[in-house]
Design a protein around this nucleic acid. Structure first.
Length: 109
DNA sequence: GCAGTGACGGATA
DNA sequence: GTATCCGCCACTG
């Protein structure tokens, strides 16, 4: 083990407060990972067995629940977001910008 | 070691 | 704002 990049992602995702959402690119940028947001999504894929990782709070730049289809069940993602007070319409977060949580800013404060 | 793929993002038209 | 292309890095076959 060498501090897997995935673990770094998990930590940031777990730091996402309730009622807030983040994006793959934002997390990757905060970690200083030039590897691209794609690797962040891959980390989420590894987070399948990690209930401590609220992957449902991580969406793409468009606020679209791109990964909801990978949830179990997929409806759990928008359901959890709705439970957090986030409105999801057509698999997309309403007023996503208002719910957006940027680790590079929030954690920097 | 090479090729294909993937929960994305940015740039360009 | 929408549509398309390319680049990015890691994992699997």
């Amino acid at each position: 083990m060498k501090n897997d990049f995935f673990e770094q992602v998990y930590e940031v995702v777990k730091l996402i407060p309730a009622g807030r959402v983040s994006s793959y690119g934002a997390i990757a940028a905060y970690l200083g990972a030039k590897r691209s947001a794609r690797v962040v999504g891959w980390a989420m894929n590894n987070a399948h067995g990690l209930p401590e990782v609220p992957a449902h709070r991580v969406v793409n730049r468009n606020g679209l629940l791109s990964g909801k289809m990978h949830f179990n069940p997929p409806e759990a993602m928008e359901e959890r977001l709705a439970n957090e007070g986030i409105v999801v319409k057509e698999d997309q977060i309403v007023n996503f910008k208002a719910h957006f949580w940027d680790p590079a800013i929030e954690l920097a404060l």
